[in-house]
Computed example of a mutant assay.
Amino acid sequence: MLKLSKLADYATVLMTVVAREPARTHSGLELAERTRIPSPTVAKLLKVLAKDGLLESLRGAHGGYRLGRSAERISVADIIKALEGPIAVTACSAHSTDACTIETDCATRANWRLINTAIREALEAVTLAQMVQGTVAGGSRPPRPDREFPLVRA
């Protein structure tokens, strides 16, 4: 199963909360309370996101965190990369310099790269602003599974 790490998921939640009020400075404690993410985890994530430039850290009595750039210029891929590094489904799809022991006999490498590119581009296409609004790329709302695929009762 392909699965986003819990920290990357939490980071996206934090960034969405901050982006809802971009002009405000948010404290770590406030963000922990609003998101129900444990305070130590919030502190860790805020530091990583600030180090990567997605958040700006402000010191002083009225310090805290705010967006490092506009929500329209931050993609979901940016948030994931800040936490996990380059987006890669498999080691060979990351364009790694590490030698693969089965590369010469591997028929799947090109397709894994194609799949990886599609996933990366999809994550790059969704902005933090869209996450806040609950819209998908192109401006429409995401489909509701209960309406698109109604339960069939036997």
Rank of each mutant, 00 (worst) to 15 (best):
L49W: 00
A50Y: 01
K51H: 01
K51W: 01
G53V: 09
L54Y: 08
L54C: 07
E56D: 09
E56Y: 02
S57R: 12
S57C: 02
R59E: 15
R59F: 02
G60P: 09
G60C: 03
A61K: 03
H62I: 03
H62G: 02
G63A: 11
G64V: 10
G64P: 07
G64L: 08
Y65H: 09
Y65D: 11
R66A: 07
L67T: 10
L67G: 05
S70A: 15
S70I: 06
A71R: 06
E72A: 15
E72I: 04
E72W: 12
R73S: 15
R73P: 02
I74R: 00
S75Q: 00
V76M: 04
V76G: 01
A77K: 02
I79W: 01
I80T: 03
A82W: 03
A82G: 04
L83S: 04
G85H: 01
G85I: 01
G85S: 02
P86L: 03
P86C: 05
P86Y: 07
I87P: 07
A88M: 08
A88S: 12
A88Q: 11
T90H: 02
T90I: 07
T90Y: 00
A91H: 06
C92Y: 01
C92L: 14
C92W: 01
S93K: 06
S93W: 08
H95D: 13
H95G: 08
H95E: 10
S96F: 04
T97N: 08
D98W: 02
D98N: 03
C100S: 12
T101Q: 10
I102T: 13
E103Y: 12
T104S: 14
T104C: 11
T104F: 10
D105V: 13
A107K: 12
A107D: 08
A107E: 14
A107Y: 08
T108N: 10
T108L: 14
T108R: 11
R109V: 13
R109F: 03
A110M: 09
A110H: 09
N111P: 02
N111D: 10
N111C: 02
N111A: 06
W112L: 12
R113Q: 12
R113Y: 03
R113F: 04
L114Q: 10
I115D: 07
N116V: 06
T117K: 14
T117C: 05
T117Q: 15
T117L: 14
I119L: 13
R120A: 11
E121D: 15
A122K: 12
L123N: 07
E124H: 06
A125C: 05
A125P: 07
A125H: 09
A125T: 04
A125Y: 05
V126G: 09
T127V: 04
T127E: 12
L128V: 09
L128D: 11
